[in-house]
């Protein structure tokens, strides 16, 4: 749970990247991440090339560096973990500036840092240039089961509503001097969670009723659809293709 969850990542814009159909972008990011994960960690320069590729996409999408940096905060706990591995790791050790570090630990740290950072950056780029609703349409196009897409759609639609309810409950708790400090307060937090569940569940029931009232019979009517041209596929898949080429060259 990062601070980033409070805000949507989407940055409205009209760049080439924004205009690409969502299914193309989704597949491109997934393929790119796979190539990154499959790259042997000894190939330092590959990771540099990948970063440059992402930089190019960010430039084309006009996503500011500050936006990227802020959104990548989500990665911080893993950075901390990665930095810890060499210190606590076993195996062969070397001494750097008076600090004894494990060699396999250093490799593991580098591997996690490089790959996780590239993965997060690619995901942030996707989420920054694609409206959530479009991502869902894209996911459906990529044959994600439509029930799953619908569940995600409802979740996104009501996330703000539920979070607002939770915020109101927290304000109500705190305005009566409550603060979660130790075990004894667990019942209070639990009651909040309990009533949040009841509210969410009952809202789900009401939403379902509202759907039934308008003729829902278990299938969502497909109103929107976005089809992609060969050119758009080509443009989107240029990213993972380039990454694959880099990987190929390095082997």
């Amino acid at each position: 749970m990062g601070a980033g969850h409070r805000h949507q990542l989407y940055l409205p814009g009209g760049s080439v990247v924004h205009r690409l159909p969502p299914q193309c972008k989704l597949l491109a990011v997934l393929a790119f991440a796979l190539v990154v994960v499959a790259t042997p960690r000894e190939r330092f320069w590959c990771f540099g090339a990948y970063a440059a590729l992402l930089g190019g996409v960010a430039l084309a999408a006009r996503v500011p560096v500050g936006h990227m940096a802020r959104r990548m905060v989500i990665e911080v706990p893993f950075v901390l973990f990665a930095l810890l591995i060499p210190v606590i790791g076993l195996g062969e050790r070397i001494t750097v500036m008076g600090l004894s570090l494990s060699v396999p630990g250093l490799w593991a740290a580098w591997n996690i840092l490089a790959k996780a950072t590239l993965g997060v950056a690619a995901s942030v780029l996707l989420a920054s240039t694609t409206e959530p609703r479009e991502v869902l349409i894209g996911a459906q196009r990529l044959r994600l089961p439509s029930l799953l897409v619908q569940i995600a759609m409802f979740m996104l639609r009501y996330l703000d509503v539920i979070m607002d309810e939770m915020r109101r409950m927290r304000v109500a708790r705190e305005s009566r001097g409550f603060e979660a400090r130790n075990f004894r307060q667990i019942p209070v937090v639990a009651r909040s969670a309990g009533s949040l569940f009841i509210r969410s569940y009952e809202r789900g029931e009401r939403v379902h009723l509202a759907m039934l009232s308008r003729g829902y019979s278990g299938r969502m009517p497909m109103i929107n659809d976005i089809s992609a041209s060969v050119g758009q596929w080509g443009m989107a898949l240029a990213l993972p293709a380039a990454a694959l080429a880099v990987l190929g060259l390095s082997l």
Partner: peptide, 18 residues
């Protein structure tokens, strides 16, 4: 049954919040 999408969606939002 056919309540799956809205109910699971709302419960998912609940899990996310909780």
């Amino acid at each position: 049954d056919d309540r799956t999408a809205p109910m699971a969606g709302l419960v998912a939002a609940f899990i996310f919040a909780v």
